[in-house]
Amino acid sequence: MKDKEKPEPPKVGPADLSIRREADGGLALLPPGGGEPLAGVRVARCFPWTRPDSYISVRDEAGREISLVPDLGELTPDTRREIEAELVAQEFIPRIVAVHDVEDRFDVMIWNVETDRGPVELQVKNAEDVHQLDDGRVVVRDHAGGTFVATPSELDPRSRRILDERCG
C-alpha cells in the first residue's frame, strides 16, 4: 500500500537522463517529458571492485531503478559531472600507501598505516578481515566496517612484506 502512495519512478535511458543538484544538497531527476523534479535520487556502482566506472545504477529514494548507465560516456556532460561527483563524495575507501607496522594485541591487530587520506590506525579483529582480491589488491576491513585497499605492487618493500605476512 505504501507503494501506491509513491508512483513508480520513470524509466529513463542514459542519453535522456538529466540529473541536477538540489538546493538541499541532494540529487534530483528532471523527468524527460518535463514536470516536477524527482528528489532523493541515488547512484550506485554495480561492480564497485571489478569495473567501478561502468554500470552505474540511478535509483529513486525507495531504491527502484530509474536508469542503468553502462558507460558514463553516454550521459550528457552536466549529468555526468553530477553523477561522478556524487559517486566520489559518497564513498570513503582510503587507499593504503604505506604500512608502518602491525601490532598483535590479544585478538585485535593494530595496523598503523599511511593512506591517501592521511595517516590512520586500524583495529582489525580477524585474520579473515585481510584478504586478497583476484587482481592482487589487498582489502583490509577494520572493526567498524571501514574498508581500506592496498595495491602491493605499488608499495615499498617493507610495507609489502608486512602486508604479505598478514594476508591469507
Partner: peptide
C-alpha cells in the same frame, strides 16, 4: 544522513537550503 560506502554525509538543511554538509567515515 546520506549513506555511502565506507562513509556517509551529514547534512543540515535550513528552509530547504543546504546549510552544512559534513563527511564522516563509517567508524
Amino acid at each position: 544522513i546520506a549513506e555511502g560506502a565506507g562513509g556517509s554525509r551529514f547534512r543540515v538543511v535550513r528552509e530547504g537550503i543546504l546549510a552544512a554538509e559534513l563527511r564522516f567515515s563509517i567508524r
